[in-house]
């Protein structure tokens, strides 16, 4: 379930470090921001690496100097120390060079910061896709916007985007502050109630990129994850067309009975397109089975975990806003069967 990155292109600006870094010992973890997979993250990662290298050098030099200073003319620890004395030295020699060099480095870094800021402020071309992401304690509502409102659709916790295209993301919150963060593609933008923030993401290559809520938002901040899946443009369109469809009509028999239970017991919170279930408090489940995880990255989306989740959400994700809905064993089975059909 870890994010699979098909791309392993390193950081253009700093090939040397990237080579060292991309050795097999450093298989890049899913949320790492040391490597980048899109133009926006590229500039940021170069900057990050640059600052990191400067920092390591500064630390090495200063540590070296301190050690050298200590061992230069060490006096014995015990017994009376040497008599105090002043060696008159030119303050300029010590501070002038050091501060001058520091100021120079800093000036360079300010410049680099401003340039990066300017470079990533706007996407390179007009975004082809507009997504509105709404933070909720503790999951993400994802709405794809279209010029024709009838072609809007909702999903949750996973968003598909066309690779190689910038995508505009508008951020809303329905409760507290969250932060939208896909390290491989972009830094954080806070999701603040009463305020509309926007950001953009772009993936160079198809792949799955892990996202995570980046601002503490309560009990399940840890499990407020999401995924950005970059598809080849054709795959993206296919996915989108599928999402736009009504949920598959359940086959007669168990699935259909499951829908009835679902509408009655779950429909107040969950919506499934084309059924009576039209709730808004929870994630839209129309095409639940096209997602790979449940409850914002808490569980893999398979039947067993689905049953585990529905029968006791509070022990799987303590505090989650989804209550335990008492269902008989049969009802549970029916609902699972129905949900499993939602492709």
């Amino acid at each position: 379930m870890a994010g699979i990155r098909e791309s392993s292109i390193g950081i253009a600006a700093l090939p040397a470090t990237a080579i060292i870094y991309s050795g097999p010992a450093f298989a890049d973890p899913p949320l790492s921001y040391l490597s980048a997979f899109g133009p926006k993250a590229d500039s940021t990662a170069s900057l990050t690496w640059g600052l990191l290298i400067i920092s390591i050098l500064v630390t090495a030099v200063m540590t070296g100097l301190v050690i050298w200073a200590i061992f230069r003319k060490r006096a014995p620890v015990s017994g009376p120390g040497p008599e105090p004395e002043t060696h008159h030295i030119s303050t300029f020699n010590i501070f002038g060079w050091g501060l001058g060099l520091t100021a120079l480095i800093l000036a360079g870094c300010v410049g680099w910061t401003m340039m990066t800021l300017a470079a990533i402020d706007q996407p390179p071309k007009t975004p082809a896709v507009n997504i509105e992401v709404t933070g909720n304690q503790w999951w993400w509502r994802v709405r794809y916007l279209n010029d024709e409102p009838s072609k809007n659709f909702d999903t949750a916790n996973e968003m598909h985007i066309p690779a190689g295209e910038p995508v505009k993301v508008t951020l809303r919150s329905e409760d507290v502050i969250h932060s939208f963060w896909v390290p491989s593609l972009s830094g954080k933008t806070d999701v603040i109630p009463g305020q509309l923030n926007t950001t953009w993401i772009e993936a160079r290559e198809p792949g799955t990129y892990q996202g995570q809520c980046g601002e503490y938002c309560g009990l399940q901040h840890a499990h407020m994850q999401f995924k950005v899946i970059a598809d080849k443009p054709a795959d993206y369109l296919a996915w989108r067309d599928n999402q736009l469809k009504l949920a598959p009509t359940p086959a007669p028999g168990d699935p259909q009975a499951g829908l009835v239970v679902f509408e009655k017991r779950c429909g107040a919170c969950h919506a499934v397109r084309g059924t009576m279930a039209g709730g808004y408090l929870g994630p839209n489940l129309s095409h639940l089975m096209t997602r790979s995880t449940l409850a914002a990255g808490t569980l893999p989306a398979d039947q067993g975990d689905l049953a585990g989740w529905i029968s006791d959400p509070q022990s799987v994700k303590p505090g989650t806003r989804m209550p335990h809905v008492p269902l008989s064993g049969d009802e549970m089975q029916l609902v699972i069967t129905y949900l499993s059909s939602l492709n």
């Binding site: 921001y33 500039s43 940021t44 900057l47 990050t48 600052l51 990191l52 400067i54 920092s55 500064v58 630390t59 200063m62 540590t63 301190v66 870094c109 680099w112 910061t113 990066t116 800021l117 990533i120 932060s179 390290p183 972009s186 830094g187 954080k188 933008t189 980046g214 601002e215 503490y216």
Partner: peptide
Amino acid sequence: VLFVIGGVSGFMTASVPADWQFTD
């Protein structure tokens, strides 16, 4: 030495775009 290490990490986060990654 500890101040230099803590200081340079502060220096890194002072850069806005980099901090968008570092923060939190």
